[in-house]
């Protein structure tokens, strides 16, 4: 049986006119896995996390965490979960260590056990050296790490991370992703949200793709990619007129999808790369453009999203 079960969840803000943030969403998360919610801004990821954290009541549907109902047994649910909010929810005037001590006390820890646990967490998040500095002196990445650490103090069985890598340098992102994998390896079940396809691809056992409040696909990565069919991705770079060509290529026979060009780069999804490529070169020539780079690849989640919604993931 799934450790977290979500069934027919629905949430509308400021009814009757407000946005339907979550619309009839159902999924299950297995004990011990990393489960990601992947979707663009406004997809409803945070709303789902809030409902599963007992901070928001759903209008309809039901969610159970570790067998407890989020609406009727919120105290029990809250004891099982650690929540890393999307924004950095910490006290700037306190040091990293003081923040962790405070949140530990909120989870009912105290005395030597609390101090020991804070030492451990500081070690995991790599901030032992800077622990006595006030948070206002930390970099964005360091704050993000404390933000995660504060959710780990009470050894939660379930860890929710809501876009924990937004706006930080690649190095910090790397250490956060590795950290999440480590916690998971230590037995924590992870619910992770992101709008970065690469992240979801890298760390997840299973992924739910969300758009505008709806869940459009759930499964392991290879299952999702199969939704696109037996297709090949042709990655191209053009020296000019990429927009015009993208438009033209959408009408070519054998082309299933063309991405929006970005800095002259785009990709084309096709089920017959061999016959399509010469035609791409021809039409580039008639548009007085040169193909400066070309390679073939497997489809990825971005293509799944585009295939299912008709829109690019990052817009």
């Amino acid at each position: 049986m799934d450790a977290i079960v979500v069934e027919g969840l629905r949430k509308q803000f400021d009814p009757p006119k407000g946005p339907v943030a979550v619309d009839d969403v159902s999924f299950g998360i297995r004990e011990g896995e990393i489960f990601s919610l992947l979707g663009p801004n406004g997809a409803g990821k945070t709303t789902i996390i809030s409902i599963l954290s007992c901070l928001l009541r759903p209008d309809a549907g039901e969610a159970r965490v570790g067998g407890f109902s989020v609406t009727r047994e919120s105290d029990e649910v809250k004891r099982l979960i650690g929540v890393v909010p999307q924004e950095i929810a910490l006290y700037e005037e306190l040091s990293g260590r003081e923040n962790l001590l405070f949140w530990g006390r909120m989870y009912g820890l105290n005395g030597p056990a609390l101090n020991k646990r804070v030492d451990e967490v500081l070690d995991w998040i790599g901030l032992v050296d800077r622990q006595t500095d006030r948070l206002e002196k930390y970099s964005g990445g360091m704050k993000r790490r404390v933000n995660i650490g504060a959710a780990l103090l009470h050894n939660p069985r379930f860890l929710y991370l809501d876009e924990p890598t937004v706006g930080i340098d690649p190095q910090s992102r790397r250490s956060i992703l590795d950290g999440v994998k480590n916690f998971n390896a230590a037995g924590v079940t992870v619910l992770y949200t992101t709008h970065y396809m690469e992240e979801a691809q890298e760390i997840s056992d299973r992924i739910a793709i969300m758009d505008r409040g709806a869940m459009i696909a759930v499964g392991a990565q290879d299952e999702l990619v199969r939704l696109v069919g037996e297709r090949t991705r042709i990655n191209l770079a053009l020296d000019r007129n990429a927009d015009i060509l993208a438009e033209r290529w959408r009408d070519l026979a054998g082309v299933s999808t063309v991405s929006e060009p970005e800095d002259g780069r785009l990709w084309v999804l096709t089920d017959d790369a061999n016959s399509l490529m010469p035609r791409l070169f021809d039409s580039a020539q008639t548009a007085e453009a040169r193909i400066t780079e070309i390679n073939l690849a497997e489809p990825n989640l971005e293509m799944v999203f585009l295939h299912l919604t008709g829109r690019a993931l990052r817009d």
Binding site: L55, K78, R79, V83, E87, L90, Y91, M106, Y107
Partner: peptide, 11 residues
């Protein structure tokens, strides 16, 4: 800044 929510999520 989500601190009250975080407190509430911590029980």
């Amino acid at each position: 800044n989500g601190l009250l929510s975080r407190l509430s999520a911590a029980g």
